[in-house]
Design a binder for these strands. Structure first.
Lengths: 204, 204
DNA sequence: GTCTATAATTTGATAGAC
DNA sequence: GTCTATCAAATTATAGAC
């Protein structure tokens, strides 16, 4: 189970690229992080852009791939909401820099979203459609209050993802070290779920 | 009211730096955007870092300055929540790239937060303290359900700010052009307010 | 496969003419 | 004040020895 040099380089590249995006990444940082020489990067991978593309595809998949499965599940709305939140926060506890990385790169080149989206067979329309349908059905049945399903989905994502984007700010303002932050996010799974369910509940 | 060259350069620099952060910004991009020569940047400002520091201070102030005032107001909790949401979304409609820019730079250098925070006389502890106090009072009075005030504040911020961070993704997934997105955010002020108020309301 | 040395390219900063 | 030309430094990429 000992890692090949190629894997070592990839792991190092993930760290460096994810930290500040493509522009801020130095190939020398990747080499140092991997404990090898810069020239060896070019032996295993053609150039910086090639490494980045491989990394981006993997990170993109991490960010969107699991979500797609969860969104497609045949659960009730409540159960689906719970799973989305648990999946998002759970993933980001393991990879806290992920959303910032995706945001940086997709903002500077939005076509990446379409390119890698189709590459992974993700259909955004489909992804949203089921959730919308389910939500509208619950509204029609009178189980929840009238709310735009798209906005509801944005709200769930916002509550799950934003704290990680703002992690450095939150940590300073609320005086948390990384461990405290992680524990706080662990508890947040339940808190966000309750917040959302309350928000869509009907009131007398 | 015709702009000086210095102002033209600053405006261009704001655009370029905000787009992808310091590392991705090219001085040649700033010059082209300003319609002048690269050398002229160095005539008006010492170097890239100097321009960036000026820009960052301004943007930082835009992002945190107004919030500070709103957080200090003597309103009821409900009114304060409304004002926070309106202020955040309102500001970001005018400056949609702002939160991504702040997130990128503060993530790569968290000390910026403390440095510019104290420079502007912002005290994060104070900022949160009043909100916490007010929220606890409402809980004690039985007006809202029991909720961690810090988490509530994070939730309000998440709902207000995240859509702008994820703007490129949301735009693609929901097929909105920039104008539609802006209109959607305008409506969102009210929707987020209702969402939050419902979420903290007590249920029978 | 891995390294050292070096070349090529990109980017930022300066000198000096107008 | 603004430009062209040039330099210097940083960064990426390649050649070639071992």
């Amino acid at each position: 189970m000992t890692k090949t040099t190629e894997e070592i380089i990839m792991d190092a590249a993930i760290k460096v690229f994810t930290r500040g995006g493509y522009a801020a990444a130095r190939t020398s940082d990747i080499a140092r992080e991997a404990g090898i020489n810069r020239a060896l990067l070019h032996y295993y991978f053609r150039d910086k852009q090639t490494i980045f593309n491989l990394i981006f595809e993997g990170r993109f998949k991490e960010f969107f791939g699991g979500l797609f499965k969860v969104m497609q599940s045949e659960d009730s709305l409540e159960e689906k909401i719970r799973k989305i939140i648990n999946h998002e926060i759970g993933t980001l506890i393991l990879h806290p820099d992920l959303p910032r990385f995706i945001a940086i790169e997709v903002a500077s080149r939005p076509e990446l979203l379409v390119e890698y989206g189709t590459k992974l067979g993700l259909n955004p329309r489909m992804l949203i459609a089921r959730f919308e349908e389910l939500t509208r059905a619950e509204i029609a049945k009178g189980n929840i209050r009238d709310i735009d399903p798209k906005q509801l989905l944005i709200n769930i994502m916002s509550l799950s993802i934003y704290p990680f984007v703002a992690q450095p700010i939150i940590r300073v303002m609320m005086q948390m070290d990384p461990v405290m932050f992680q524990q706080s996010m662990e508890r947040r799974k339940q808190e966000v779920f309750e917040f959302v369910m309350n928000a869509i509940k009907k009131h007398a």
